[in-house]
Design a protein around this nucleic acid. Structure first.
Length: 1127
RNA sequence: GCCGGAGUGGCGGAAUGGUAUACGCGCGCGACUCAAAAUCGCGUCUCGCAAGGGAUGAGGGUUCGAGUCCCUCCUCCGGCACCA
């Protein structure tokens, strides 16, 4: 017998397998169940590292195992081929990113093949292949047509020198990685997908999935649904009253419900409101309507003029003719020409579509333009024209009813005496709201900085703070030190709607602009962050929640079905007469550690009660009352001594002893608790009851109670429990609001190497989808791949490519030049695997349905909240469009661990600790590398394992021992090994299913150790063992299998079956414990009953039990006997 | 900062709430050998001569019994929306 020559074996078998098409998956296999095993496809970075082996070769064990178990297995692979590195390489080397990418793919394919992986290469998918991205574009357009896609101004990283958008990765310490200039945040119009519409379903549908709970938890928290309240805080900074003139539109009238609502709201604030009925609303003429509008009011510096739709045109004409400027002009759904998006109007001839913009600007102190991005009548182009004409950016909103900008209009009008809407999950603490904080990007802050109201007295300062905050990323803002910063808006106060008190208003960057309403109320008494902030800026703290703790565990846990007895009690914190020490009590009959406490008798004075209890419980005679420690504290628990449920209302009091004079304590008291003196630093540790801890914190001025409790200082709500009060206060002062942390998915990228967004911009039709027949919109060739320098994508350089005809009106139009986020590519690739060559559809339902949903998806933990959530969303959107049959794409998900360098650090070129798998494979073989990676640690837990070059040889040695074991194979089966073999079959199978490959391999090693010791094993036993080995080390197993005389490939045989009867021996070893400590062991028959086990155990430790009283005996058959004895 | 996870010998790790340290590496001793390598055998948490005691990041709790469940804290890892 020759030695184990891995190089020869690993060259020979893959050829055979490929020749026989061993791993090509058929769409339908007779009598077999389908099993779809998916691994995240790699980015073609150019070189395979050990991490790739870990990602592909280890799950391959499961794929091979499932095949042997008779499953029809789909185990596909492809490349996530668009992305930043290709573009960077292209810029650096002046090389086409396509060439760079495709050559990397070719190289990596060969490397992946060398792993002995059983991938079905006939289904390979490459995302930068137009045959693939045609369908990425098509699917994107389905979402676009379903109204799930919109454009919105969003902040991006901006390098002012290069004039380009930077990825987060390209920003290093707030500087551009290329030119080192300071990166700023810039607002740009970006394509968004409405993933937030699916937030609830993405949360709810997690529940039934067979996913690890920590992944579900992460996604749930990422989506971050929270039920809270929105409450309005009016701002106070001037008492100016305005006259509002509201001009309705075509076919409109002052009787529209929204006008009634506005009028009522504005008049409540003391403003005057005029809503003239404009003549002939169905056949309007300009002269008539403008005259009527002019006649309706005096226009002066206190006038606010609102025009909606055609009213906007009238409003502009009115302003044109004024002699003095008005305060404010609001144009909603306005336009400056006669191009209507939906249909021509019969009034357009009676209007002159010319405006004297200079006059309009001169005659208004400020102008606001509102535009619904889905407006049916007004196109994006028209709004752009209006913006250009007036030199003002419009505010784009998504309206409830198209064309009417709805809520937003009201907000704009109210700005003149604005209210700040706050989002809170703790409406119950409203009475404790002592200040207001706005995010630096809050619209009112922007508004105030523009100086329109003369509200701010410290504009310069605020401006500076806001600028600084906006330049920083979110993580920097919340992580920079722990110190919170903020700045007061001088001259502006807000009114707490509950207390009616005026409170300070701050701008602080710990409040995020895009979460909730971008404004929070500060409740320093009951929120940790607010507390910190209030301390720093010396803001008032008002406590409105009395703590309530409800014991739910332990022997003093509330007994749910029993009565609750209410008692008032005193808690006495007592200080030593000379030292900085305090009296604490350690109870004996229950797990309670705290201060002196006792019930207040009827009619008894609280202070006196405390003095009495001190004497009774500690014996000290001369205590002096110093002060009360705030409000009551409540607790619900089961009193062990009184044997009833208690609802205690505690009054915390502070006493000092004058001297050490002390009576002997009664025997009764001594039996209840010990008196201990503790230093100030030891007390907090010692206390184990929240009500006691609160008393202590109050003494030290460190109280910050954020839990549930009972309301105080809250008018009619005082006495309510916090959960009831949340509802009641929300109903009275605000409304319920559900918010999510999840934000819409920004898919725009100003980059070359991505999927072109298949949209055309037309001056009259707005953004229009490219026709299906025109797909794919192929990436144009450009001279170089540097960004445009104007903020546009490099695609804008392909000038000819950009110029197209509008698919709708055939007029001149321009192509969208942004490309799609690569997460879009990877949101559906697993569908394409099921029908990768289809040119008519993204995948044929008949081919897709037998495989979906994916049975097991294995990948990195870093994808938990982004790729995994995006693809779940994408799939749900396709489900709603009827394009897929199931609402969830992945039945089971598993996060893999990561492999570190030999030094325990993350592998990276800069650290120089990158392990080259090719070199190890040459030296030790692919089977060794596969198996070592599987053996290194549990695959199904997120952890990290350093690659240990010494340990690899252990696995190599194991394979060499397997090779040599051939010598011991004989004709007759070895009876001594039979039971172990069956146990091993069971263990290996179960462990592979659970992806615990390390313990499966350990079981194989244990079997081989035993077989070597025996120096003989039967042919059948040997062949069973080889089958168990085959998924792990496919090459050597195949070679030995063939050497054993088998003709068919081992990978096409079936997995061995174990016999239940072979799993248990005749006797079992039982542990004997005394008081839970192991004191010996005894061998008993496997079927021994409890009595038999107990007496055997008693005999075994008879010496130790001598003279001891056995209180209890616990017998766990097959495991142990535990004698509980009196010490 | 927020969210999720981990912490067990010299190292990677094993352990349905039931005899902690399986399996592998390393190390020590021995066999084979002229010798070395390879291989095989034995040993290897710690204190103790022993009897026995102690140990799963720290501290506390629940339990007959805790590496495992609960609370507080420490350290490390992953994610935080344009790396993929």
């Amino acid at each position: 017998m020759k030695g184990y020559d891995h190089a020869k074996i690993e060259k020979k078998w893959p050829k055979e397998w490929q020749k026989n098409g061993l791993y090509e998956t058929s769409d339908k296999a007779k009598g077999k169940d389908n099993f779809y095993l998916l691994v995240e496809f790699p980015y073609p970075s150019g070189n395979l590292h050990v991490g790739h082996w870990y990602a592909f070769a280890v799950p391959d064990i499961l794929a091979r195992f499932q095949r042997m178990r008779g499953k029809n297995v789909l185990y596909p692979i492809g490349f996530d081929a668009f992305g930043l590195p290709a573009e960077n390489a292209a810029i650096k080397n002046k090389l086409n990113p396509r060439i760079w990418t495709l050559s990397n793919i070719e190289y990596m394919k060969n490397q992946i093949r060398s792993m002995g992986t059983s991938f079905d290469w006939s289904r390979e998918v490459v995302t930068c292949d137009p045959a693939y991205y045609k369908w990425t574009q098509w699917l994107f357009l389905q979402l676009f047509k379903a109204g799930l896609v919109y454009r919105k101004e969003t902040a991006v990283n901006w390098c002012p020198k290069d004039k380009t958008v930077l990825a987060n990765e390209q920003v290093v310490n707030g500087k551009c990685e290329r030119c080192d200039s300071e990166v700023v945040q810039k607002q740009m119009l970006q394509w968004n997908i409405k993933i937030t519409d699916y937030a609830d379903r993405l949360t709810e549908d997690l529940e039934p999935l067979d996913w690890p709970k920590e992944i579900k938890e992460s996604q749930k928290n990422w989506i971050g649904r929270s039920e809270g309240a929105e409450i309005d805080f009016p701002l106070v900074f001037n008492e100016k009253k305005y006259t509002y003139v509201i001009l309705h539109g075509f076919q409109g009238s002052p009787d529209r419900p929204r006008f009634h609502y506005w009028k009522a709201e504005l008049e409540k604030q003391g403003h005057k409101v005029v809503i003239p009925a404009l003549p002939n609303p169905d056949h309007p003429s300009e002269d008539e309507q403008v005259a009527a509008a002019l006649a309706a009011a005096d226009y002066d510096e206190n006038t606010v003029l609102f025009g909606g739709s055609l009213g906007a045109v009238i409003a502009m004409k009115v302003v044109e003719q004024l002699k003095n400027p008005i305060a404010h002009l609001v144009l909603a759904g306005g336009f400056v020409d006669r191009n209507f998006k939906d249909k021509p109007r019969n009034f357009d001839k009676r209007f002159i579509w010319k405006f004297d913009t200079a006059r309009i600007k001169k005659n208004t102190k400020s102008i606001t333009i509102l535009h619904d991005i889905h407006d049916t009548a007004i196109s994006e182009q028209q709004i752009t024209n209006l913006e250009k004409t007036l030199g003002i950016k419009a505010e784009r909103v998504v309206a409830e009813t198209p064309h009417f900008t709805g809520d937003k209009e009201m907000t704009v009008l109210m700005w003149l005496r604005p209210t700040i809407r706050v989002f809170t999950t703790r409406a119950d603490t409203l009475y404790g709201g002592t200040y207001l904080v706005l995010a630096p990007e809050h619209p009112w802050v922007t508004h105030a900085l523009e100086g329109k109201d003369d509200a701010l007295k410290n504009r310069g300062e605020v401006q500076e703070y806001v600028e600084k905050a906006k330049g920083r990323t979110e993580i920097e803002r919340s992580a920079e030190g722990k110190e919170k910063t903020g700045i007061r808006l001088a001259g502006v106060e807000a009114v707490n709607p509950a207390t009616g008190k005026e409170i300070a208003v701050y701008v602080a960057d710990y409040v995020l602009g895009h979460y909730g309403t971008g404004a929070v109320m500060g409740v320093p008494a009951h929120d940790a962050r607010d507390n910190e902030f209030a301390k720093k800026y010396k803001l008032p703290v008002v406590k409105v929640v009395q703590p309530l703790s409800i014991r739910t565990t332990g022997m003093d846990a509330l007994r749910p079905r029993e009565m609750l007895v209410e008692r008032d009690a005193v808690v006495a914190v007592i200080k030593h007469w000379a030292e900085d020490k305090f009296i604490c009590l350690q109870w004996k009959d229950q797990p309670m550690r705290g201060f002196v406490t006792g019930g207040i008798e009827k009619g008894e004075d609280v202070v006196e009660c405390g003095l009495r209890e001190i004497q009774e419980e500690t014996g000290y005679k001369n205590a002096k009352f110093i002060r009360a420690l705030g409000d009551k504290v409540h607790a619900q628990f089961y009193s062990v001594s009184k044997q009833e449920n208690r609802f205690g209302h505690y009054v915390p009091m502070y006493y000092e002893l004058k001297d050490g004079e002390r009576d002997e304590m009664s025997a009764e008291e001594r039996a209840l608790h010990d008196v201990v003196w503790l230093k100030r630093t030891e007390v907090r540790q010692f206390l184990n009851r929240p009500e006691m801890q609160v008393a202590w914190d109050r003494l030290n001025g460190t109280e910050n109670y954020t839990g549930e409790g009972i309301l105080a200082n809250s008018d009619a709500f005082t006495g309510m429990r916090t959960d009831e009060a949340r509802k009641a206060i929300t109903d009275t002062f605000g409304q319920i609001k559900i918010t999510y942390k999840l934000r819409d998915w920004i898919v725009s990228r100003q980059r070359y190497w991505g999927v072109p967004i298949p949209v055309v911009h037309c001056s009259s039709c707005g953004p229009v989808a490219v026709k299906d027949s025109e797909l794919p919109v192929k990436l144009p060739e450009v001279k170089d791949y540097l960004p445009e320098g104007s903020g546009k994508s490099p695609l804008a350089k392909a000038e000819k490519w950009v110029q197209v005809r509008c698919p709708q009106c055939k007029g001149k139009a321009e192509r969208e030049t942004d490309t799609l986020d690569t997460f879009v590519d990877s949101s559906w690739y697993f569908l394409r695997y099921t029908d990768s060559k289809n040119s008519k559809k993204f995948a044929d339902a008949k081919k897709m349905e037998p495989w979906m949903p994916v049975d097991l998806y294995s990948g990195g933990a870093e994808h938990t909240t982004m790729h995994l959530l995006y693809s779940r969303f994408w799939h749900k959107a396709l489900f709603d469009l009827g394009l897929v049959k199931e609402p969830e794409p992945y039945r089971r998900r598993m996060n893999r661990s990561i492999i570190l360098g030999p030094d325990g650090q993350k592998m990276s070129k800069s650290r120089g600790n990158v392990v080259d798998p090719d070199e190890v494979v040459r030296r030790l073989g692919a089977d060794t590398v596969r198996m070592y990676l599987a053996f290194i640690g549990p695959y199904n837990e997120v952890s990290s394992f350093p690659w240990n070059p010494d340990s690899v040889v252990g696995v190599r040695r194991f394979l060499e021992r397997v090779w040599r074991a051939q010598e011991h194979v004989g004709k007759t089966e070895n009876v001594a090994l039979e039971n172990l073999l069956h146990k091993t079959i069971k263990k290996v199978g179960e462990d592979i299913t659970a992806m615990k490959f390390n313990t499966a391999i350990s079981a194989l090693m244990i079997f081989l150790n035993a077989a070597e010791k025996e120096r003989s094993l039967g042919k059948k036993q040997w062949e069973s063992f080889l089958k168990l080995l085959a998924p792990f080390a496919p090459h050597i197993a195949e070679e030995l299998w063939a050497a054993s005389g088998q003709k068919k490939s081992i990978h096409q045989t079936t997995w061995p079956v174990y016999e239940e009867s072979r799993l248990v021996g005749e006797t079992v070893k039982i542990a004997i414990q005394i008081n839970g400590k192991t004191r010996g062991g005894v061998e008993v028959p496997a079927d021994a009953d409890k009595g038999g086990i107990e007496s055997a155990g008693r005999d075994a430790v008879a010496v130790r039990l001598e003279g001891k009283k056995i209180l209890r005996t616990i017998v766990v058959p097959g495991r142990l006997v535990n004698f509980v004895v009196q010490e």
